[in-house]
Amino acid sequence: MTVSGSEFGYRHIEDVATSDAAFEVKAGNINELFMFSGQALFSVMCDLDKVGHGQEIKIELESDNLEDLLYLYLSELLYLKDTEDMVFSAFDPKIDGNYSLSDAPLGMKIETLNEAPRVDIKAVTYYKYKVEKTDYGYYAFVVVDL
């Protein structure tokens, strides 16, 4: 079952790496793949429905392949978490055919959350990392270091 309530969305996977966290994403198109991945990432840290949309940060990224672009995108979100002191809950990434990405995720300052994040994510790992085109759209598997 996926979190979005349809066949597409993200799902936390237990017991892939004992002290870390993993999730998989199924999406109908490439923009959704990145959107669900962003949601999955921050849902490890906090309940997304408790994260407001008061602030926006712009992101522009480029890569030469889809796999690396998703890794860069998720890593960029973690970088912004620390430097802007923010968590995000709404994502609307646009990816063009040349693996250029633009997004302006919405979120709020960590200090203004009613409940502190239950855990911090240090980084996105390459362990079992997978991004692939499927017959229904796109699939990703990500393990993050806590």
Partner: peptide, 18 residues
């Protein structure tokens, strides 16, 4: 540059997890 920006505001902090 990113590592510098990320580290500057965290010298003297425990972090999270375990």
């Amino acid at each position: 540059e990113k590592a510098f920006k990320r580290g500057l505001g965290q010298v003297g902090s425990l972090g999270s997890g375990n």
